[in-house]
């Protein structure tokens, strides 16, 4: 199974690009070169970090739509990551349904997986549930980014939150001190390179916190993708 991960959120500044980076590092650490599609990012995109892997695209243009979806469903071992601007989410979903993206991807042994970052607000979980239902054929992972705040108990009790978490995968991006987050955000050395050699460029007193944050997120991502891989292979074996 080759994963095609779509990183999405209904809000701006929810940590999509950071999550896309950690996903990219996860694949790079596993010895694979991801293909990264940066959708409607403007000039803040991922191209600077992964100049050879990133294709910046505008989803309003038909040639770009073709470049994205046709590449996503073409068979091959390289994992795919889509960093989707929040304003392009609906367009992406509409196009996916229009061209039956999930089924076409599976036919080429590509597994589409949506990583949806939900802000800690009731509305965000309602939107997440609607999205999961619309993209019924896609796998869905709920991402809680603690950097955006904790989820109140009342929300945790809500039907939407429970429907998402009791019957689906979930990962948590722990909060990181703002000063450290700025370092991570502005950093033009790969996070994977840092994992291999923590002495790289990062001030001594910051290394431990950044390292433990990365380990947590990478472990969660690995756990979720591994579970999906197993179940996809199981489905394949069952025919």
């Amino acid at each position: 199974m080759t994963p095609a991960v779509i990183v999405a959120s209904s809000r701006p500044h929810s940590g999509k690009t950071l999550l896309a980076r950690v996903l990219a590092e996860n694949f790079i650490l596993g010895g694979k070169r991801p293909l990264i599609y940066d959708i409607d990012a403007g000039d803040r995109g991922l191209s600077r970090l992964y100049p050879n892997e990133v294709l910046p695209l505008e989803l309003a243009r038909v040639p770009d739509q073709m470049a994205l979806f046709d590449a996503l469903v073409s068979a091959g071992p390289r994992p795919r990551i889509v960093d989707l601007a929040n304003r392009s989410l609906q367009k992406f979903v509409d196009l996916s349904l229009e061209c039956d993206f999930c089924a076409e991807a599976r036919a080429s042994a590509i597994e589409p997986i949506v990583f949806f970052i939900a802000a800690p607000e009731q509305e965000a979980f309602e939107e997440a549930l609607v999205l999961r239902q619309r993209l019924g054929a896609c796998r869905f992972v709920l991402v809680e980014n603690r950097q955006l705040g904790d989820i109140r108990a009342a929300i945790r009790q809500s039907g939407e939150y429970r429907a998402l978490t009791e019957n689906g995968a979930r990962i948590v991006m722990p909060a990181l001190d703002h000063a450290l987050m700025e370092v991570v955000d502005e950093w033009d050395v790969g996070l994977g390179a840092f994992m291999r050699d923590p002495t790289l460029k990062v001030p001594l007193e910051m290394r431990d916190d950044i390292r433990s944050w990365l380990v947590k997120v990478l472990t969660d991502i690995y756990r979720v993708l591994d579970a999906i891989d197993r179940s996809a292979n199981l489905n394949l074996a069952r025919g």
């Binding site: 073709m66 229009e98 061209c99």
Partner: peptide
């Protein structure tokens, strides 16, 4: 043929 264009024609 392009998946996207097939989708457009289908709709």
């Amino acid at each position: 043929y392009s998946l996207v264009l097939r989708g457009y024609v289908r709709t």
